[in-house]
């Protein structure tokens, strides 16, 4: 890259030094480009640890882990505290669905299991796959909001005009932050039909019996 500058005796020594420094600086540049991408997973980890943005465990949406299910029987209910839980759900622009909770608020004690139904209806004329992304507000309560059942764990697939009732079973852990009296669980549903790869198992002889069912596989 370095060229002899006009009207000057560039010693080979200077040129070698220049090249060495240029290479180092270019490596820093490439490293920083990589760092921009590294911020993506770093941010996810950071959000999960702090509950930033009210994001729950990103992969499972606050789902109780399988190994913890047994402990749910031993849970004690703290009747000294009553928390109001509010529900909000709607479809993002571009998704012609109706999505709403059966009730906008319930009261629970920490440790108490509660079931709330949500309703989804595909108002459009075509089959749509959607995904609901949960969010908890205030954010620092997100880590204490646990769900054993939720439509947000998987993608929702509704045929044109189809209606569906979808239960959410949740509880607040006993150590739920003392300063929160009201917590809001919000769902936003997004159209992911284009992002879902549909694999047709038809014509596959080894596949016993069931045909026509499509297996949806998320592409990202």
């Amino acid at each position: 890259m370095t060229q002899e500058a006009e009207g000057q005796d560039v010693t080979e020594n200077v040129e070698a030094n220049n090249n060495k420094l240029v290479i180092r600086l270019v490596v820093i540049c490439l490293g920083m480009f990589g760092f921009a991408y590294a911020l993506v997973p770093l941010y996810e980890v950071f959000c999960e640890v702090t509950g930033l943005n009210g994001r729950m465990d990103l992969t499972a949406g606050g789902r109780v882990r399988v190994e913890d299910v047994a402990e749910l029987d031993n849970i004690t209910i703290d009747t000294s505290r009553t928390i109001t839980v509010e529900f909000v759900a709607d479809a993002a622009p571009g998704l012609n669905w109706r999505l709403e909770p059966e009730t906008t608020r319930v009261t629970v004690h920490p440790g108490e299991m509660k079931l709330v139904n949500f309703y989804a209806e595909n108002l459009s004329g075509k089959d749509i796959v959607a995904r609901a992304v949960p969010s908890i507000s205030p954010g620092h309560g997100a880590g204490y909001f646990k769900k054993t059942q939720c439509f947000c764990f998987d993608e929702m697939s509704l045929a044109a005009g189809q209606k569906e009732e979808m239960p959410v079973v949740f509880h607040l852990t006993e150590d739920f932050p003392k300063d929160i009296r009201t917590v809001t669980l919000a769902y936003k549903a997004f159209d992911i039909t284009d992002k879902v790869k549909v694999i047709e198992p038809a014509n596959d002889v080894s596949d016993s019996g069931e045909t026509g069912d499509t297996v949806a596989q998320v592409a990202w």
């Binding site: 540049c29 490439l30 490293g31 920083m32 480009f33 990589g34 760092f35 921009a36 991408y37 993506v40 990103l58 993002a92 995904r131 992304v133 936003k188 997004f190 159209d191 992911i192 992002k195 592409a219 990202w220």
Partner: peptide
């Protein structure tokens, strides 16, 4: 380079199916 990374993510979000900044895709 970080700015370059940000606009590259925008570009792939817009045209190549990534979802860096799109809640629908995580």
């Amino acid at each position: 380079p970080v700015l370059a990374g940000a606009v590259t993510m925008m570009l792939t979000d817009r045209h190549f199916g990534t979802s860096f900044f799109d809640a629908a895709g995580g």
